[in-house]
Design a protein around this nucleic acid. Structure first.
Lengths: 218, 218
DNA sequence: CAAATGCTTCCGTGAAACACGGAATTTTGA
DNA sequence: TCAAAATTCCGTGTTTCACGGAAGCATTTG
């Protein structure tokens, strides 16, 4: 029996549907469905998870970070990435981060099953359209510096991304401070640091940035 | 028994998953899954379809045309639109085209079921978050004149739209005031009026609104 | 015509947020 | 271990926001 968890931070319906698709299959038990990464982190310790499916969209920093975290802290969890938007950087980064499998939304349910079984068995599984060897080589080469420059601008910290998210939801400094148990001045500091790191002049720039990177939903 | 068909031209996995989610339910039989509209048109005559779910993405002209076609030629087919990208225009256009229901990817499986049952029973079903003032205003306004017109919810004045535009470009009140030869207090007033008219609480809401309505570019 | 309504303009006031700088403590990574 | 980064907080002055009021015009409408 394979214990399977799924994360989709952007499309609840997709999450539920995918769970329905897979829960009907032999040898598969859905042990968790998560609409946010923090949710997952909070709950995952209490769960048995063999394979974790992460649906990755355009905004992928947090998902990539999660994959890194998982592959270092709990390597018994095998990560299968399903990318919802065609973006090369997602492939490189997720595999570099330690994902064991990579599929796209183009792939069928049976392909997902094959991927799950392969990954559970300790094998990697990549979408047919991706040439394994070339890709792996490429990624190994990229270990160090890269021409594509696909990493996140400014190297924002977790806290800072958190702040952007809340701020993008319309929370005031006070509300954020209460929620994070810090003072409003600290919230201001974080904002200042963000603006400095990203070299933005106005908060509008920041908001647009956040939207482009799907840190917040329009 | 409800005969259900699903169209998703962008995401085969979503199509399959959604079918899996719904086919497990009482009273529902999936009679067709389509990855293209021409596919659907070719095959649909030979099928019994009570409810047709159409997953609509950003490019939606073809889907909208299909809805029009269906509601005029085969009104016995009730169309339920599930929009995958949040875009106000999709709402207006699909409802105008004759869709009986409207949901978003945010909605749960149970909400879809309710929508399906409602629609089968001859009732319309719209997502809760959609039945707001903006929608009603907009559709009422659209009754009569054509799309493409720059009429906006809440009856914003020219000046107010001007303010939104500048503000969305990152201009400060002072800069706007200089550019428009008015005082900064007047700029503030305009902003206040805008927020009141649109019933927004935070400027984030306003910015998101502006982006949705193509007042500013991300 | 007179009244009503909406647009544009402006102001007062107190609260909140921003810009800029400094600084202490904790975490992290090489 | 030790430097760098992250996180926390504050001072000070400027700007914006929230809420309210109001005056001058243009228009529409009874």
């Amino acid at each position: 029996m394979i214990s399977l968890a799924i994360i989709d931070t952007h499309n609840p319906l997709m999450l539920e549907s995918l769970a329905a698709l897979l829960s009907g299959k032999d040898e598969i038990a859905i042990t968790g469905q998560f609409t946010s990464i923090t949710d997952f982190i909070k709950t995952s310790r209490t769960l048995t998870i063999n394979v974790l499916i992460i649906n990755v969209y355009k905004a992928h920093i947090e998902e990539i970070e999660l994959i890194k975290k998982i592959s270092s802290e709990t390597p018994c969890i095998n990560v299968l990435v399903i990318s919802m938007e065609m973006q090369e950087s997602v492939i490189y980064e997720s595999i570099k981060a330690g994902a064991k499998g990579y599929l796209t939304k183009q792939d069928s349910g049976s392909e997902i099953l094959m991927a799950i079984y392969s990954i559970r068995g300790g094998y990697d599984y990549y979408n047919k359209s991706i040439s394994n060897i070339i890709l792996n080589n490429y990624i190994r080469e990229m270990d160090g510096d890269e021409p594509g420059k696909t990493s996140f601008p400014g190297n924002l910290s977790k806290r800072e991304i958190e702040i952007i998210r809340f701020w993008g939801e319309g929370l005031t400094n006070k509300e954020m401070a209460d929620k994070l148990f810090i003072s409003t001045r600290t919230v201001e500091s974080h904002k200042n640091h963000i603006m400095q790191k990203l070299n933005f002049k106005t908060s509008i720039d920041l908001l647009k940035f956040a939207i482009r990177n799907n840190l917040i939903n329009v």
